[in-house]
Amino acid sequence: MALKIGDKIPSFSAMDSQGNVFESDSVLGKKSVVFYFYPKDNTRVCTEQACSFRDQYEEFRDLGAEVIGISSDSTKSHQKFARQYHLPFTLLSDADKKLRKLFGVPNDLLGLIPGRVTYVADKEGIVQLVFNSMSGKIHIQKALQILRKKK
């Protein structure tokens, strides 16, 4: 079942781009969090989206939020992607698609491409925004709008 506005983000763990275990409880309940699911490292729209989050990262931090990108790419792929584009935020590997299932992220284009969905959770871990669009850059604008309202 897909997470929706008002739901609490469940606890989970996943491998980050450095090969470390990331525990969601390290941020949930402590600060606002933007979880953005994207299809694949090093594709045009996904790279534009990641770089847009990078370019606005300080604003997210100033608003008390952390940004976390999630795709099914390997930790090695994420490490290279983060280094190449100087991404200052955490990338999580969801190779087994457990996180996509946990959040309820749908596939796009007749089920052929993993969906692009952004979730904004407040400091208590409650979902304030679910934004589903294959257009990457709009996700950053929508997430910032919600965070500014909560400030």
Rank of each mutant, 00 (worst) to 15 (best):
V34K: 10
Y38Q: 06
A14G: 05
G64S: 02
T43R: 14
D62Y: 01
F53W: 12
R61W: 00
S77Y: 00
I5H: 02
Q49E: 15
K30D: 06
S24D: 07
V34F: 12
K31H: 09
F81Y: 15
D55H: 04
I70E: 07
R44K: 14
F81D: 00
H78R: 09
F60N: 11
K8S: 15
S71A: 08
D62C: 05
D16R: 12
G29W: 13
R83D: 15
R83Y: 11
T47A: 09
G64E: 08
A50K: 13
D41N: 15
F60E: 04
S71L: 05
F35Y: 15
S11P: 00
Q56H: 10
A14L: 10
Q56N: 15
V34S: 04
R61A: 08
K8T: 14
M15K: 15
S74A: 05
K31T: 14
G29E: 02
N20F: 12
K31D: 06
D16A: 03
S24T: 03
R54W: 06
Y38H: 15
R61M: 03
K4E: 10
S71Y: 09
P39L: 11
V33C: 08
D16K: 04
P39S: 06
G29C: 05
F12G: 11
G29T: 03
A65I: 03
Y38P: 08
D55I: 08
E48Y: 08
Y57V: 01
R61I: 07
S17K: 11
F22M: 11
S77M: 02
G69D: 00
L63F: 02
C46S: 14
F37K: 06
P39Q: 05
R61K: 12
H78D: 02
E23A: 07
R44D: 09
A2C: 01
K76D: 13
P39T: 11
T47W: 13
S52M: 14
R83F: 03
H86L: 04
K8P: 00
K40T: 08
V45F: 04
I9M: 05
I68E: 01
L3G: 10
D73N: 14
C46Q: 09
E23H: 10
S52V: 11
E23N: 07
D16E: 07
D7V: 02
M15T: 09
E66H: 01
S32K: 12
E48I: 09
C51D: 11
V34Y: 10
D73M: 01
V21L: 14
Q79I: 00
G6F: 04
S77T: 15
R83H: 14
V34Q: 10
D41E: 12
G29I: 14
K76C: 01
R83N: 15
A2F: 01
Q79M: 02
F53P: 05
D55K: 09
E58F: 01
Y85C: 00
V33D: 07
E66G: 06
F53Q: 09
I5S: 03
H78M: 04
S24E: 04
F53Y: 15
G64F: 08
D55Y: 13
S77H: 02
A2V: 10
C46G: 12
S26A: 09
F81E: 01
P39K: 12
S26Y: 03
C51W: 04
Q79E: 15
G19F: 09
A65Y: 13
F37L: 11
D55A: 08
R44V: 03
K31F: 01
S71C: 04
K31S: 07
Q49L: 11
S32V: 07
A50L: 14
D55P: 13
A14W: 08
L63I: 06
S71H: 01
S74T: 14
